[in-house]
Structure formats: C-alpha cells, structure tokens
Nucleic acid binder design. Structure first.
Lengths: 165, 165
DNA sequence: GGGCATTCGGTTGCACACAATTAAATTGGG
DNA sequence: CCCAATTTAATTGTGTGCAACCGAATGCCC
C-alpha cells in the first residue's frame, strides 16, 4: 500500500519513527551479539562456536539427522552448513556419510565424543540464565515472543504484503 | 550449595533446561536473522546493508562522529568498522578524514548524498512495524526488554575478565 | 629531551550468513 | 531406455563479527 504520512491513528512523526528504528534495530542486533558473546565464553570449554552448539543441540535431541533437515530446523542453508559441519567433523564431534538409499543426501551423526560433550553442555543453561538475570519463566516468555515475531517477519518476507495475525 | 540438582527452588531438571536452552538459543538467533532479512530487502533500495544502516542512523542523528565513538555507540570494534566504513566511503555515503587535533583519530562525516539517503530511509520503520505485526508500543516494550537483557549479559561478561583500567 | 605506556585505527585470520551457481543423483515422461 | 526437470550438497563471492596483533601518534614521567 502506498500510504506515506497518516497510516496510523496515533500519527507518530517520521522523525520519531526513525529514532525508534535506531533503537529497535540496534537493540536487537546488540542483544543477539551479547548473547553470542556470553555463549562464546562458555562454549570455549567445549571447543564449540555458537552455531556449532545449535547443531549439536539438534543432534543430542534427535540423533542422526540429514543435512537437509538440519538446515530446515536451524533455517540455515548449505552455504553456511557445509563448512560448519566440516569443522565439526574435523574436531571429531560428528561424522558425515552419504545415505545409501539416496546418494544425494548426507546424514550427520554424532560420534561418541560428540555425544559425550552433552554431559558438559548441561552446565551451560543455568549459567546463561544467571548471566541474563532472568528466571526460567521470563526466558520462556522471551522465547514465545521472539518465536511469534520471527514467524511474522518470515511470513512478511515471503510475501511483500504484510499479513498481521 | 548443591551445584547439580537444586540450583533453584523450582528445581527444573537438567534435561528440560537443555531443551529450553535449545529454544531460547535458537529463537534469539532466528529472530535476529529474520529481522536482518527483512531489513536487507528494504535496504536494498538504498544500497545499504543492515550494519551500514546502523552507522548511517548514528550519523543522521548526531552528524560527524569519530570512529572511536561509532564503535562505542554500536559496540563494534575497529576490525568490523574499518572495512565497513571503507565500503560506505566507496559508495559515496561518507568521507573519512584524520583529525588535525589528534592525528590518531579519524572522523566520519556523511556526504550530501549520504544525508539525502535519510529522506528515503524514513519509509523503512513503518514497513518494519507492518512486517513485525507489532504496534509502536510493543516495539518500544521489546526495545526496553532487550536493552535490559543486553545490559545484564554485558555485565556478566565483564565479570569474567577484568576491565582495562 | 629521552624513554615508555597508552590510545587509536588498521590488518590478518577465522567463522558465520546468504545469494548465486554448480554438480551429482534421482525421478518422471515419453 | 533416454532425456529433461527436480532435489540435494557443495562451492564461490561478498559482508559482517571478533580476537590478536601492528604501527603511528600522543601524553606522561623523569
């Protein structure tokens, strides 16, 4: 829709909207990097990066998983996953092998060492909660808010026309 | 006190905490990338990336700014800012020049073209709001939550390593 | 004036993130 | 059975993000 000035009954001036955008834009970016930074410190012990940890979380919960499904779950494409999985394989956390059923497909499986990492990973969540100063319930609330927001943004990205709710 | 089972009065099992971590961890990562993705589409018109837009927002609001201050405001170090500013200079949005007062310092100034971009940038915030399905108030709320969270995470990160002072 | 730590920006190396392209394997139609 | 479209990973190129290091400029101290 091509409306420019009085889209809303609240009629927030453009200047203020741009200033608000500065804040939202930055705070989300900053929050993501701050979380990343805290995880980075905790994950150093495990020899994992933050995205690598995401992959291991999926493998710990669901066992061996095709690359395709990893990409779908984490919303990462092969351009990101391929080198990441190679590094995980290089440090011995996973093995990759082509499926015999479908030679196009590559299945990712945690090694015993990769599985063993889980024992040490269980110490991370309590530390994250401590660092965030949030309770379990607050984090659950944040999760649901962010999930809703992401769903809305994804929907909007797929189609130029925004469809609220 | 016991480190393993009774960290909290609620006594959430480790398994559930790891699963919750999966969700929080992923949802924040995903939300950040989803926002990034929506901005990317809108910013394509302006020829800016998301972090470049963050820099321009600061320049539009505060005028010429030393690299040092840009880094402080956006919490980005020179390793990220240097190449980013070079690209902004290459496309003619900014100029960089060393301060005559202190030859170590570089001041970043928007060019007339860079300043003119602001006219087109004011269209972005309403679209972001539409895509997010949030009201101005909800976004303000999100901003304050994320800012609090980031502050807590930053503080926790500082505790591990002592400050350079 | 001569050292010396500090400050500031830049560079390098590594790891995502994503768009676009490529290559191999599979499937379906004739 | 052969060919064309499709699926699936991998590769390439660009742009962050950050740690570690470098070199020039500055300030401070004797």
């Amino acid at each position: 829709m091509g409306m420019t000035t009085e889209v809303e009954p609240t009629a927030v001036p453009e200047e203020d909207l741009l200033r608000l955008d500065t804040q939202i834009c930055f705070s989300l970016h900053a929050a993501s990097r701050a979380f990343n930074s805290v995880y980075r410190v905790l994950l150093k012990d495990l020899g994992l990066t933050y995205p690598q940890y995401l992959v291991m979380l999926v493998l710990w919960e669901h066992g061996e998983t095709p690359v395709k499904e990893l990409g779908a779950r984490l919303r990462l494409d092969s351009g990101t996953l391929s080198p990441l999985l190679k590094r995980l394989e290089a440090v011995g956390c996973i093995v990759r092998e082509r499926s015999s059923r479908d030679e196009r497909s590559v299945v990712v499986r945690p090694t015993p060492e990769g599985t063993a990492l889980r024992e040490r990973a269980v110490r991370i969540p309590p530390r994250i909660m401590a660092a965030s100063g949030c309770t379990v319930d607050e984090l659950r609330d944040l999760h649901s808010r962010l999930a809703r927001l992401t769903a809305a943004l994804d929907a909007a990205a797929r189609q130029g026309a925004p469809e609220p709710r």
